[in-house]
Design a protein around this nucleic acid. Structure first.
Lengths: 338, 338
DNA sequence: TTGTAAGCGTTATCAT
DNA sequence: ATGATAACGCTTACAA
């Protein structure tokens, strides 16, 4: 069994209260006794029991992180940055992968709340539903602890959102592509999560403000059951064969962007001469295809850092902004010429 | 403040011991009182305080997971599977990303041990050093809790290893490539972690048993400072220009495999006619290049499941195998013709 | 079957 | 500056 504060106090010939004081750096302790206690702690390698500490402090100094799938390339990155920042701020984190089903998510929220975490971080816009009823669980949770949402927006009292302005980022990138002379732009996407909707909005806005006609015909949802990149490429080829022609592609994520590159290779189109492609997320995948994929970077690292800073502020009683929005940036590689 | 066991016992008109009993499903409780208590728990939404519980049980039912970088595509997958399995077995997990520096790793081990976790999982062979002194911290840790190692082998009393036989997997794949008529095989790798060494061993064994001469000339370490895939491709091209010729590439991971594909594209070589390529890990990256990358799958999901099963066994006092080895399988895609 | 009471290792409020 | 001591919420002998 490992040492307790009692063992240390005994060896040092002081009371546990004194030991506790030096441990917490709190009240005044005579420097000599402080030294003596520290020496003994070092010598015997004592470390406080964090459960007991949590009971005394009524806080675990632990944050619950929920994400749908921590092996997703985008979410993994976010979780990584969050944990690094939390750790640096002296918080533990409890990670929980929920999958994409709403009921499962609710259950996991309850589970993690029962661990008496000090706060909750929802990673990814898939935690926000379109219907208000789908989000009741967020309101309920926020009654107990502050809820942070990464990459989506939800307005409520004790919830704080950090996000990238996906709509505007997509708008700007689509506009830039259009103004470079590429007027027939195919938009491909998988799902309409919160950020998925924003991106599509941004694309539509861009086409509208360019007075582009019939742009809706070039908005293409990839059915969720087709997942292989080659299959998606084939689906795009089909779409083209059905009478839609385009010389640019904007994809809602990098995987889809790569599928578009594969489509071009299949059709013998040159990139970027015959077809320009822009992905989204600026993930490691961008380097894997040839030519390398131009992509929109949504500042995940900055978002994560800000989120933790905001959370720590909230937990220490400060007033913090309920919504912080960053702008994405277009990272140009070789699937675009502008 | 949330409810305690006292609140529930009061509302139910029983003692806290009885409530605790139904909570733990332990000793005999009359069905009617059990029902009554459950109803009240449901009605008021009581959830036990896990710190208090940990103190009583003298266990947090928590496992510490250490990995160098949870955003690494391979490690993220492993961590994901581990967490899923631990959760299913009723364990929490505390994830901690250590980076690749040895001293940092040691510090993190101590940190996580101070949380009084019930066990430790080291994810990835980069936790095992070549020199024995580098591994002392594992021995020290295993004196306190069982230590599980994923994807590497280390022999000690309270440490348990689950791994894929990388040497043999590489041996078989290289042999298959050789026997298909591809006799000049370039081996590329980054680092010599535990599994990195095994893979290289396997390659060497294969070449030796084929009586291939001068195969050492075709073993190429990519300097760690060059990281971009295009740059690696360029490095390979340089290597070739310096007088090494080859018609096959075996890469120590998928990223390097893709770099080899990029090299071929750069040189105008046809894949697989002029150059065959095999990657390692069978990650999502395999689908991103064109043609899609043949890769060795190291059964991460199976490894993770087995690891958790073994850990749970150890924690419940059962005798468990100290070393479990799976075999990798070659997943053939389009960078190979055999 | 149920209740009583003694821990578990801290923190924090009193006194001294 | 330091020491007693009461919480904190739970588990678990031991009694009844």
């Amino acid at each position: 069994m490992s040492l307790t504060i009692y063992d240390i106090s005994e060896k040092a010939g002081v009371s546990i209260a004194t030991v506790s004081r030096v441990l917490n750096g709190s009240s005044k302790v005579k420097e000599s006794t402080r030294q003596k206690i520290m020496d003994i702690i070092d010598e015997y390698g004592y470390t406080p029991n964090s459960s007991a500490r949590a009971m005394g402090l009524k806080s675990m100094r632990t944050i619950g992180i929920l994400c749908a799938d921590s092996s997703d390339i985008f979410l993994a990155k976010a979780v990584y940055y969050l944990q690094q920042n939390l750790q640096a701020s002296g918080y533990e984190s409890l990670l929980c992968c929920t999958g994409y089903n709403l009921d499962a998510k609710k259950n996991y929220v309850n589970l993690i709340l029962s661990k008496k975490v000090d706060g909750l971080i929802l990673v990814g816009s898939n935690f926000i539903g379109e219907a208000e009823t789908e989000n009741q669980y967020i309101i309920d949770s926020s009654a107990k602890v502050p809820v942070m949402v990464l990459n989506a927006s939800y307005h409520n009292d004790n919830v704080y959102c950090i996000l990238c302005d996906d709509r505007n980022s997509m708008y700007r990138a689509a506009t830039e592509m259009y103004e470079s002379g590429i007027h027939d732009i195919l938009y491909i996407y998988n799902s309409l999560s919160y950020s998925g909707r924003k991106k599509l909005d941004g694309f539509r806005m861009a086409m509208q403000s360019q007075k582009k006609e019939d742009y809706e015909d070039l908005i293409c949802q990839i059915p969720s059951e087709i997942t292989g990149l080659e299959d998606i490429a084939e689906y795009i080829a089909d779409y083209e064969r059905r009478g839609h022609s385009f010389n640019g592609v904007m994809a809602a994520d990098d995987q889809l962007g790569i599928a578009a590159v594969k489509y071009a290779q299949k059709k013998g189109l040159r990139i970027p001469e015959d077809l320009s492609v822009i992905g989204y997320n600026n993930s490691v995948l961008t380097g894997c295809c040839t030519p390398e994929l131009t992509s929109i970077d949504n500042q995940l690292e900055t978002q994560s850092r800000t989120l933790v800073k905001t959370l720590v502020g909230v937990l220490s009683g400060q007033d913090m902004p309920h919504k912080t929005v960053f702008s994405g940036t277009l990272v140009k590689r070789n699937t675009t010429a502008f």
